[in-house]
Every structure is written in structure tokens, then in C-alpha cells.
Computed example of a mutant assay.
Amino acid sequence: MLDIMVEEFIEHGPLDVCLRKDKHLITTGWKFTVARQLASALSYLEDKNLVHGNVCANNILLARKGLEDGSSPFIKLSDPGVTFTVLSREERVDRIPWISPECVRNVSTLSTAADKWSFGTTLLEICFNGEVPLKERTPPEKERFYEKELGLPEPSCKELADLIRQCHNYNPSGRPSFRTILRDLTQLQPQGTLWESKPVLL
């Protein structure tokens, strides 16, 4: 018997590619819309006590770009792929700064708190047009970054920087719920921009 997995084709591909390729067309409102949709999808998973485990801009797919006048982006959160619980320590270190510090040390600590850390890093990717934080660092440098409990570069918006800092709390229990994150992003959403309220999980 042959098992076949069928996945939906998403025309516009992963978010990180779009952020880099179309950065001259992307507005602040567009970025907030995408971030809010992602927080909504992860809030749904958190309510079900489900962990995604690999939140990053490369795993967010654009079903609609929303770069034309009168339209808005629409995302789908992709399958996480191979869970990092089966990866070696070296492979987990390579996933810094998306993987949470506690999960580098011990994969059995995987929880929704890990998704909050990953969301904070993904939010930075969105802010910085798909640029990957720490991409120039070697694996030992990445490990030391976590060991010293350092912070990643921050966006110029103070409120957004504060939210990312909360997601990147080195104490997992100190990270905000996705409902709180969603509320904060809604309050920060620039007025007059279009957004979809129900993102889809792929």
C-alpha cells in the first residue's frame, strides 16, 4: 500500500521570499496585517494546547499577496515539517534564534511557550524585510548568545520592541499568551489598513 501526502499549492510562496523581493511595495500596515494573522493562527493552536514547533517566515505561505490597491495579504501557516525533537543538538543550535533557549538544552520542554519565542523572532523577520537575525554568527557564537541571555536587534517602534522583548523572555512562563499578543498587535495596527481576521492553517 502506497501512502501519498497531498499539499495545497500556494502560488505566492513563503513570506520571507516576498519580504525580500517586494520590500519596496510592502507597507507598515501590510506587515501588521500579516503579524496579526499569524498571532491569530497561533492563538487558535494555543487554545487547543497544540504546539507548532517551527514558526518562522519560511513556514508562512502567502495565499494572497495583497499588494494591490484595495486588497490585503492573506497567510496560511504551513506544516512545521520534521520536528526538532528528533534533531541533534548541533542541528537545534543551527535553528537559533527561532528555537527557544530551553528547547536547545532539552527538547522535552517543547510547549506553546516555545512558539511564542519563535513568533518574536518571526516578527523581527517581518519588521526587517526577511533579514535573518544572527545569520552571520557561528554555532558557538549562537550558543553563547543564549547562554548570556542577550537580546536581538529591535524595531524602532517602542511598543513593538516591547512586545518582541516579552516574547523573548528567557523564562518561558513569562512570555505572554497569544491572545495578549493578538490584542497588543490589534491596538498597534495602523488605522485605515485592511486586514483579514481569520487566517487559515495549512
Rank of each mutant, 00 (worst) to 15 (best):
A63Q: 06
A63L: 11
R64L: 13
K65I: 13
L67D: 03
E68Q: 12
E68T: 15
G70Q: 06
S71M: 12
I75S: 00
K76L: 13
L77W: 13
S78F: 14
D79Y: 12
D79V: 12
D79E: 07
P80I: 11
G81R: 02
V82M: 02
F84I: 10
V86W: 11
L87M: 03
E90C: 13
E90F: 14
R92L: 04
R95C: 07
R95Q: 06
P97T: 12
P97R: 09
P97A: 09
W98Q: 00
S100L: 06
S100M: 09
P101M: 03
E102N: 05
E102T: 09
R105D: 06
R105A: 15
N106S: 08
V107F: 05
S108N: 03
L110F: 06
S111M: 03
T112Y: 05
A114Q: 00
W117S: 01
F119W: 03
G120H: 02
T121M: 04
T122W: 05
L123K: 04
L123Q: 04
E125I: 12
I126V: 02
F128V: 07
G130R: 09
E131M: 15
E131I: 14
L134W: 02
L134A: 02
L134E: 00
K135P: 05
E136M: 13
E136V: 15
R137M: 10
R137V: 13
T138F: 04
P139S: 11
P139K: 14
P140D: 04
P140I: 15
E141V: 14
K142C: 09
E143L: 13
E143Y: 12
F145W: 08
K148Y: 12
L150S: 07
L150Q: 05
P153R: 12
P153G: 13
P153Q: 07
E154S: 15
P155V: 13
P155L: 11
S156K: 09
S156G: 08
C157G: 06
K158R: 09
L160H: 01
A161H: 02
L163F: 08
I164F: 06
